[in-house]
Design a protein around this nucleic acid. Structure first.
Length: 855
RNA sequence: GCGGAAGUGGCGGAAUUGGCAGACGCGCUAGCCUCAGGAGCUAGUGGCCGCAAGGCCAUCGGGGUUCGAGUCCCCGCUUCCGCACCA
């Protein structure tokens, strides 16, 4: 008898897996491939429970699929560039490269102790020039195609991180990383034209049938397509014209052109390009500018704290509603967004809540032009805006038309007259990728006085990140401090030029790493298209919901870019997405600042990696949040110890080479048949739970049931089952004379060990060995389920009378419906309820239930 | 406000197509074993009534469909998540 001591045996099997290279793969055409991927890790220094859960889930699937005969690619890597390493450098002077390498080494050790079946031979880190060289290569391809471009723009600036943020990285008005309120700055920036793919990214969400609905919804909302029209409102010519000419009209964007007869004023965003000219020509330019400035500064800060009051002022200028030909006042309003649509809107107070509030506050006219039934309603009767579609009233020739039809005709009219046209607006904006930081991929561009913006020639890639000794945290790009980096000769004219000193957003790195895993050591190209064609798309991708927008939309964008430059032949990179829930402690996310972190290393030290893995999969379905409890982990440990004792008890008796089966035994007694049935039914349940449902918690439950059954079987079979043997240490081997018992138990144990191996691989290997197998379990075959064996011979069928269960019939599984009905009606317990009453109806659900209705 | 998901014992959670609600585990109770137990084994564990057999009530609340509803439909409540002045 030996006790379950996970630590030693886990080390043993980890070493064997490494030395036998069982998890390394090639493009084996003879087997179906399966690409199982967990989101790679930022090397923060320590793996946390979220990592443990993420990788345990992925590993269970990878190991199971491998045993099912798939050629499984299961790689891991490091999202190694990023701000924390650089901020640490500013604080304590350790170079980001050094701290990152150290963190990777430590975390890799942790993951190896967890026993995740990674193909470590394919490991990559994005901070290696062998990797980021291809970021640069791809950037240049995008530049050539107009998908990467440079422009001056207002950008989100985090004053704490001292760098720019993409729109996707601004959360509640603050930095996604540190929460500091975001400021607006004007900078020259590089952008990726993700909007060129907006429609495709939106439309193809419908093809992602194995993605969580929640993620698709979030992406759809983020892209935010809305169909409408741009319409020009002519500016009144009465504007005095000292100085520069100004546009003759204001273009507005609207989704409700059918309400244009109710457009009684025009609103401009404080950022609208026309504002300067209007100020200049206004009666009091100084006051005009002061008010605009107040709105501009107010905007961001106010948005963080929540609602802001609607404010605005009359510019004094007038525009003409092109449908009514009436003059309407032009106001500037703090709630109109400069970056959406045209930065100008036609205000229809009767049919838009915001415009209604604004009109009421400033006493502007309201006109009702759409009603549910086409009957006019006086504006005075409105207590709030009516936003719904209906029938037009007081709308000239369009009166009486339904909204939808009116929209069509009005757009057509506007187009004919050159007043406007149908257009589509997106909430999605181009992806700003310039970062004024050091620890990232240098943008491979050169600025020449003569030739302008010039790409670094391919044969000069990579542009290697230079060594920088001092990290000051000042707001400018650290690379600008390195003259030998900055000063280059122009690749075109050879004259003096300077390099771009910004680096790329690290989300660029993570947008295509899953392709690189297919061919990670290629030094001629980003990846061999043939290797990617074999492995991609990723069959199963596991990661946190926090990447629902950022990473997952950028990756879908990059897949299309690679497709359009001819390197991949699919549209979508991830077939099946599983977003695992967070691991909480005391109801909140574990974090150092809250002091509620449970350290995976400590848990592995105490209970072993297998128990930890099993626990995080058993505690709840993968996508749910879970609350960490030590007691739960102990329970999982106890279960493994229970399995251990069971196998320990039986192994000498039933062990042997080759996988055993009870197929040949045809003289099984009832207990043996029952155990076989449970064994095969467990295979069925666990297989479906992992492969089809990813419901890992119920897979574990099923195995626990089998173990419970094996214990009772042992108790029935021999005096002193495994329980007693612990203390008595008696050799019972001689007690088993029945060959059938040995066959059935062996089949059950070999099944159990194999289906448990995706969850507790080390212990499963050890038990597999104890059962007499010389080859590694990691490469063993998943047990086959025999439906005939799993089928019960006898079933218990409940019988209801008027909806309440009154009796149970034990009948042969093959029993007919007629026979079931007959048996139910003659059952004494049922007859006590039917006596003296009329049986109105009997419903038989074959194999499930009999329902008798009496009156 | 808009959009999404979900409400089941003391707790985490089960329940194929509408078919025995509460699998499995945690916790708790009792017994056995033990020098000891934070080990192991056995049994019990939704509520109420009952000595018992058994009965009644129970899946957020209220209606409905059905022989039969946690599951389907309608109304309402609550919670969580995402977006949020996007015209």
């Amino acid at each position: 008898m030996s006790d379950y001591r996970p630590q030693e045996l886990e080390r043993k099997w980890q070493q064997r897996w490494t030395s036998s290279r069982v998890f390394e793969v090639t493009e084996d055409q003879s087997r179906p491939k399966f690409y199982c991927l967990e989101m790679f890790a930022y090397p923060s220094g320590h793996a946390h429970m979220g990592h443990v859960r993420n990788y345990s889930i992925g590993d269970a699937l990878a190991r199971m699929k491998r045993m099912r005969g798939y050629n499984v690619l299961h790689p891991f890597g490091w999202d190694a560039f990023g701000l924390p390493a650089e901020n640490a450098a500013i604080k304590n002077g350790v170079h980001p490269e050094a701290s990152t390498r150290g963190n990777i080494a430590h975390m890799k050790g942790q993951l190896q102790r967890l026993g995740i079946s990674y193909a470590w031979g394919r490991e990559l880190a994005t901070c290696d020039s062998e990797y980021y060289k291809w970021n640069q290569w791809l950037f240049i391809r995008m530049f050539e195609r107009g998908l990467a471009y440079r422009r001056r723009s207002s950008v989100n600036w985090c004053p704490s991180c001292n760098t720019v943020l993409a729109n996707e990285q601004v959360v509640d008005g603050g930095c996604w990383r540190c929460g500091t309120p975001v400021e607006i700055r004007e900078l020259e920036q590089w952008f990726f034209r993700i909007t060129a793919y907006a429609d495709e990214l939106l439309d193809q969400t419908t093809t992602l049938t194995h993605w969580p609905e929640k993620v698709l919804t979030m992406q759809r909302n983020w892209i935010g397509r809305s169909e409408g029209a741009r319409v020009k409102f002519a500016l009144e010519a009465r504007i005095p014209d000292p100085g520069s000419p100004i546009p003759a009209s204001i273009e507005v964007f609207t989704t409700r052109i059918d309400t244009i007869y109710g457009a009684t004023f025009v609103l401009l965003a404080p950022e609208h390009p026309l504002v300067g000219s209007l100020a200049e020509r206004s009666t009091d330019p100084a006051s005009f500018r002061r008010q605009v400035q107040a709105f501009r500064t107010q905007d961001r800060a106010a948005r963080i704290s929540g609602d802001i009051e609607k404010q605005g002022f009359d510019t004094g200028f007038r525009a003409v509603n092109p449908f009514t030909n009436q003059q309407v006042p032009v106001w500037i309003a703090n709630f109109v967004l400069g970056e959406y649509g045209t930065g100008a809107v036609m205000a229809v107070p009767a049919h838009d809540e915001r415009d209604f509030d604004f009109a009421r506050k400033f006493n502007l006219p309201i006109r009702v032009v759409v009603t549910p039934d086409g009957r006019p309603v006086p504006a005075e009767e409105l207590s709030e805006a009516t936003v719904a579609y209906g029938t037009l009233v007081d709308s000239g020739p369009y009166s009486g038309l339904p909204s939808a039809e009116a929209q069509k005709q009005m757009v057509a009219f506007a187009r004919e007259r050159g007043l406007g046209e149908a257009t589509v607006q997106y909430r999605l904006k181009d992806w700003g990728i310039s970062r004024q930081r050091y620890w990232g991929t240098p943008i491979p561009m050169i600025y020449c006085e003569k030739d302008g913006i010039v790409a670094v020639p391919d044969d000069q890639l990579p542009v290697v990140l230079p060594q920088v000794a001092q990290f000051t945290g000042r707001g400018d790009s650290p690379l600008a401090q390195v003259p030998e980096f900055v000063n280059v000769s122009c690749p075109k004219c050879g004259g003096a030029a300077r390099r771009e000193t910004d680096t790329m957003d690290t989300f660029v790195d993570s947008s295509w790493y899953f392709y690189r895993f297919a061919d990670p050591r290629n030094d001629k190209m980003a990846f061999d298209p043939a290797a990617v064609k074999y492995w991609l798309p990723v069959d199963f991708y596991v990661g946190g919901i926090e990447h629902a927008i950022l990473h997952l939309i950028y990756s879908r964008f990059f897949a299309r870019v690679f497709r359009d430059i001819g390197m991949v032949d699919h549209d979508e990179p991830f077939t099946h997405l599983l977003t695992q829930g967070m691991v909480l402690k005391d109801g909140v996310v574990m974090s150092k600042s809250k002091g509620n972190v449970v350290d995976p290393d400590a848990m592995m030290q105490k209970y072993g990696a297998d128990a930890l893995r099993l626990y995080v999969m058993f505690v709840a379905p993968p996508e749910k949040e879970v609350e960490w409890t030590d007691a739960g982990l102990e329970g999982s440990f106890r279960f493994l110890a229970r399995v251990w004792r069971l196998v320990d008890h039986w192994c000498e008796t039933v062990g042997g080479e080759g996988v055993g089966s009870a197929d040949g035994c045809d003289s099984l007694n009832a207990a043996e048949r029952a155990l076989r049935r449970k064994t095969h039914d467990t295979i069925r349940r666990v297989t479906i739970d992992i492969e089809e449902r990813q419901q890992l918690n119920t897979a574990v439950s099923a195995m626990m049931e089998l173990v419970n059954e094996l214990y009772s079987f042992s108790d029935q079979t021999v005096t002193g089952g495994p329980a007693h043997r612990v203390d008595e240490d008696v050799d019972h081997a001689g007690a088993f004379e029945r060959r059938e018992t040995i066959c059935v138990v062996r089949e059950a144990l070999e099944t159990l060990v194999r289906i448990l191996s995706p969850f507790a691989p080390h212990m499963a290997e050890e038990m597999w060995e104890k059962l007499g197998h010389a080859t590694t379990l990691a490469a063993a075959t998943w047990p086959a389920y025999d439906p005939d064996v799993a089928k019960a011979e006898e079933i218990v069928v409940p019988v209801q009378v008027n909806g309440k269960v009154r009796s149970r019939l034990t009948v042969p599984a093959e029993v007919s419906e007629q026979e079931l009905e007959r048996l139910a009606l003659i059952d004494p317990a049922i007859q006590t309820y039917t006596a003296g009453k009329t049986v109105k109806k009997v419903v038989v659900a074959r194999g499930r239930l009999v329902s008798v209705v009496v009156q």
